[in-house]
Amino acid sequence: MFRIALFAVLGPMLWGTTYAVFTEFLPTTHPFFTGVIRALPAGLLLLALNPVIPKPGVLMRYAVLAVFNIAVFFSMLFVAAGRVPGGLAATLGAVQPLVVVGLVALIGRHAPHPVQVAAGIAGVAGVGLMVFSPSATLDMIGVMAALGGAVSMGVGTVLIDRWGRAGKPLEMVTWQMIFGGLILAPVAWLKEGLPPAPDLMAVAGYGWLIFFGTAFGYYAWNRGVTKLGPSAAYLALASPVTATLIGTLVMDERFGLAQWAGILLVLGAIITGVSVRRRRLAAIETVPTGAA
């Protein structure tokens, strides 16, 4: 189990490098195009490794999931990465588990545990500390993009939970990447046009995102989720932690005391909220099948 967790955590750790790679090596004026390049080649690569074409009904569901989990999420992620320090952008995006808890409660499937409600309030307070700190001079478009990406990913997660995994995780990731890239392509063309010709650093940056940050990262994550179940949610915290460490140690990003407090408060809220959800799911899973 430890080996599986160690392999799975590589996904979020690689995602945490996305912010630095984008801002240091790629044209930040083309966030939508970067989303296309990240998603579509990775999806085609995974399809070559696992050439499976699902039934039309399943493909339609993958296309809807691709809108929320890839097209909107990737575009918002890169918009945020170009405007907000990577550590803060990653932490703002990490409120997604709290979004999921709220959405599930909103559609009436499960009432949230009081601790989850408290965790949600703490998470909102943490975001407020990060964004509205007196020492913060943040681009609000970037902040809203990071939060918008978290909401979009939260909607996609709830849809996966409602529909179930119609196919294997690798298949689902593959077709979401392909559809997501195809959806983003015309948007990128109309809004941004072609980016400048890539130099060697940009080629290396695109290659890192495609092969490691997306194809391998998402494979490692989905393989871990299928083995570990809900407990894998804890591992996702490696993404904001990695982004914050890179920003602080390598990119000389400086946060005020209130922003550090906000980061810790958000991470603590996520750990608390997800752990309560995990215990509740574990309790449900232990009910004998004949009890229904």
Rank of each mutant, 00 (worst) to 15 (best):
I4V: 15
A5G: 12
A5N: 08
L6G: 13
F7A: 15
A8L: 10
M13K: 08
W15R: 06
T18W: 05
T18A: 10
T18R: 04
T18K: 03
T18M: 08
V21G: 02
T23H: 11
E24P: 01
P27W: 09
T28L: 05
T28E: 07
T29H: 09
T29V: 13
T29M: 05
P31A: 04
R38A: 02
L40C: 00
P41L: 04
G43A: 03
L46H: 02
P51M: 02
K55M: 03
G57W: 00
M60K: 12
M60R: 12
A63K: 04
V67Q: 09
V67E: 11
F68V: 03
N69T: 11
F73R: 05
M76D: 02
L77Q: 09
V79A: 04
V79F: 02
A81E: 01
V84N: 14
P85V: 15
G86R: 07
G86K: 11
A89C: 08
A89T: 11
T91C: 11
G102H: 01
G102E: 00
L103Q: 12
V104P: 09
A105H: 01
L106Y: 13
P112A: 10
A118R: 00
I121A: 11
A122P: 10
A122C: 09
A122Y: 04
G123M: 02
A125P: 08
G126S: 06
G126E: 05
G126C: 07
L129W: 13
L129Q: 14
V131I: 13
S133T: 08
P134Q: 11
S135W: 10
T137W: 09
D139M: 05
G142M: 08
A145L: 10
A145G: 03
L147C: 03
G148Y: 13
S152N: 02
M153F: 06
G154Q: 08
G154T: 13
V155I: 09
D161E: 13
D161A: 15
R162E: 12
R165P: 07
A166M: 12
P169Q: 12
E171G: 10
E171K: 09
M172C: 11
M172Y: 12
W175T: 02
W175N: 05
I178C: 09
G180T: 04
G181E: 03
G181V: 01
L184K: 08
L184A: 11
P186L: 03
A188E: 06
A188V: 01
W189P: 12
L190N: 06
L190E: 05
L190P: 00
K191V: 14
E192C: 11
P195A: 01
A197Q: 14
G205N: 06
G205M: 04
W208N: 01
Y219D: 00
A220W: 06
A220E: 01
W221C: 02
T226M: 14
K227R: 15
L228I: 08
L228W: 07
L228A: 02
P230D: 04
A232G: 12
A233R: 09
A236H: 12
S239C: 15
T242W: 04
T242D: 05
T244C: 14
I246L: 13
T248D: 02
V250W: 14
M251S: 10
F255E: 07
F255D: 03
L257S: 14
Q259G: 13
G262M: 07
V266C: 06
L267R: 08
A269S: 05
G273N: 00
G273M: 00
V274R: 03
R280S: 02
R280L: 10
A283G: 00
I284R: 10
E285L: 07
T289H: 10
G290P: 00
